[in-house]
Amino acid sequence: MSEQSLSFQDMILTLHSFWSRHGCLILQPYDMPMGAGTFHTATTLRALGPEPWNAAFVQPCRRPTDGRYGENPNRLQHYYQYQVILKPSPGDIQQLYLDSLTAIGVDPLLHDIRFVEDDWESPTLGAWGLGWEVWCDGMEVTQFTYFQQMGGFDCKPVAGELTYGLERLAMYIQGKDSVYDLDFNGQGVTYGDVFLENEKQMSAWNFEVANTESLFDAFRKAVAECENCLEAKLPIPAYEQAIQASHVFNLLQARGVISVAERQAYMGRVRDLAKGSCEAWVEKKGWAA
């Protein structure tokens, strides 16, 4: 885009500072592998109940099947999302979001910003919401959702969730064609310097090496432990086991050892764990019905 475009890390720092100024807690990533920032307890569990909640954080996302051994310019098995959750959703949330884009260097009179219908549904979390994918010159850069239900419960009040695709946005702002060419720190280190080798090795492990017996075992153990926690009325540890089960399932998928027929059953299992954890959480907090 321009000479003085933000580096990858400066973009994150700018978003942190922007959302901090607008009343968000700046949290750190959840310390478990997960497929999307929405899994973070700061999103999922905090979307439930009446308490106001405003938080922003970077969440690394693992999508084992999206690995391309570092050969594809924009598909990664590990990438970053920037998540903002605002509950209840503020009346000016769209303008806040647009201001945040301006802050990281997107000029809305030079670039075509659009809100294009994209409703969100996560069967795994028993959740859905309405919103848009935000386009910048035809590229989806953010998922914008008003949560209506989470874990099968109505959101009262509704939270607004913004999920920025950090690498896409950075490629856009920096005018780079490959994620690996992104300027990471403004001092000569690229995204590729940091992550290319990870992508190669992790793709190989995800697709070819991961011990499937251990993975199946890990899945069973996570399920059992989740149930154990639910029995002990400990929703947060139970939910962590649901996150774990979900990630192990994704790894098994990448290894290609789950047939189409079995797939539904596994997904249903993970959904039960996640929903069960949400139910236990709602109950523990005394918000039931």
Partner: peptide, 23 residues
């Protein structure tokens, strides 16, 4: 075809529904 709740009013599920927040 699909409508939603939003904002402070959505403390209750009885709050106004519209396709996206009515401004």
């Amino acid at each position: 075809p699909k409508s939603m709740r939003w904002g402070t009013a959505s403390q209750t599920t009885e709050s106004l529904r519209w396709v996206r927040p009515l401004q």
